[in-house]
Design a protein around this nucleic acid. Sequence first.
DNA 1: CTGGTGTATGTTACCGCTAACAGCACCATG
DNA 2: CATGGTGCTGTTAGCGGTAACATACACCAG
Lengths: 342, 342
Amino acid sequence: MAKIPLPAPRRMLTLRDVSEASGVSEMTVSRVLRNRGDVSGGTRERVLEAARALGYVPNKIAGALASQRVNLVAVIIPSLSNMVFPEVMTGISDTLEDTGLQPVVGVTNYSPEREESVLYEMLSWRPSGVIIAGLEHTPAARAMLQNAGIPIVEIMDIDGTPVDAAVGISHRRAGRQMAEAIIAAGYRRIGFLGTMMPHDHRARKRLAGFEEALAEAGLALEDREFYSGGSALLKGREMTEAMLARSPDLDFLYYSNDMIGAGGLLSCLSKGIAVPGRLGLAGFNGVELLDGLPCRLATMDACRLDIGQIAAEIIAGKRAHQGLGEVVELMPKLQPGDTIRG
Amino acid sequence: MAKIPLPAPRRMLTLRDVSEASGVSEMTVSRVLRNRGDVSGGTRERVLEAARALGYVPNKIAGALASQRVNLVAVIIPSLSNMVFPEVMTGISDTLEDTGLQPVVGVTNYSPEREESVLYEMLSWRPSGVIIAGLEHTPAARAMLQNAGIPIVEIMDIDGTPVDAAVGISHRRAGRQMAEAIIAAGYRRIGFLGTMMPHDHRARKRLAGFEEALAEAGLALEDREFYSGGSALLKGREMTEAMLARSPDLDFLYYSNDMIGAGGLLSCLSKGIAVPGRLGLAGFNGVELLDGLPCRLATMDACRLDIGQIAAEIIAGKRAHQGLGEVVELMPKLQPGDTIRG
DNA sequence: CTGGTGTATGTTACCGCTAACAGCACCATG
DNA sequence: CATGGTGCTGTTAGCGGTAACATACACCAG
């Protein structure tokens, strides 16, 4: 075992430092560290030993530039505090795990401009692929995606025209489906409570589908209320109480997400309103949180884990013939819970 | 306005493409795009026009290699689904916003080995700084941090020895403080419910501080229960019911986080247990979620936003004399809510 | 006319690494 | 003995930008 001197590192270490410490060429060191090409056992040992002793960390910037390969996947989502997206991320990370690819997250806060600039920033690192939430982007963002020359997967939503591939559910259809279930259960005087964010296209589409189905049954929303910001749970409670005070005859409340739905449910429970007899409730997303509630809110699973997984598989090239324009539609399941009468 | 041809992009565009399209040298294009050095108005226009028309996206990999500057900050946290970390992220992003620096997140799932490999991966991109949760790392990870030659900020916790700077609260002290408040309120038969993760050092330290303070008052935990995985809200409910069945004489339950605490609270409410008279409850974190509950759980704010903000300021060099070893201790506030008797 | 001072642009030499190829020793084969 | 692998290592030439310096030209004071 050769003695390897341990200098105090001043400037960043390079391959040359390792090569000098181990007495071989930089190229051989590079080969050892990347496990590529033939290197004899002895040399490999010595190089690894030297690298470890020096505390060498390869410079991927240089490596990526030279090899024209970057193991990063850009993931662009509207928010991290939404519960939904961390779960999608989990699906992505797990699938990417053993591909050598690594996800890098960018957050847009539901702002198209911010999305555009985040995308620009990420593309400037030349990732191997892009996973981006939604189908609606600024023209410039669309152009960038189109010209990037890498696989693009738009996730969550499939109601629209993808740039390349898309994986998600039809929110319009999800809204319809919920409306149909509600009508079938005999509810007639229906109110809606949701977010006000103009750029939450998916919530908008759900509402559109919902109203469409109502209209086909000769019904219309009797009341609606929107919010933005703040604790969703608290907002759900407040809005529910406000709406019921204003429109006491409502027999069903449809919420744009489970958080505010849960707030509404808690409010009803504490006020002694009979759920689902007197008043039915439903949300959207199937968040895990609901399992802990005293009574299970009706909801619709958004297939978040699957979406992440499939998107990652497409990027990793693990899926059969991913012709451009591939659209994977997942089917959300209605979970009736205890808040729609049977 | 010169006509600029619009070719179908095949290979990636480079500075050379823009320089040819606009009739100036690559260097001048580079100057325009980075807004650095003197360039005449006319040239600037022409270059920007060409870049836009071509859809040129700069290659930061090459730029970073040449300039030896990378505008990335590595942020390494245990989990995204914990509520706590997205909020820290918000603090970081907001502060970094106008510094040209950009956070890149890595998630460790509370595994030290994973932390080590995530750190290695991130350092190989030569970031301008590292923000990493906790003070406990593998020896190799500590060595990497020490040798990185960039600012390192360890966040959330200050009970230990930081590599460089640290920003957080003393979880030990937080535990003590809660115990003291509980004892002062007259509770005596106390149970603990928490996570089992061996690597959640902060939860462990809170419990240690808590028990210390109990011991000083001549008390000890009467019962304890641990969980891992699953919906925290549901677990909180189940564990609470199990513990109360087993130890019906308890008069206080201390939870290691607000999520399971909320589950416990909901359980007590639905069972008609008098809170805080018969049974007191407290959690930890001050999550926004609690605002929506029918009754406010006692908790302790972990200063998450501030932690993110200050950490980012240190990395950005916005703070006065950040001598190595700087420790910023934030003071969490006890929020008694409605579940500790007054 | 000279020289100094800008302003605007171009030239050169890398940054740290890897692809591609070249070189060399060693062996089996016909 | 020429021939052609095969296994290991080194050499060369970039990857696409940027720092630092060089150059060109205009302008004005002396």
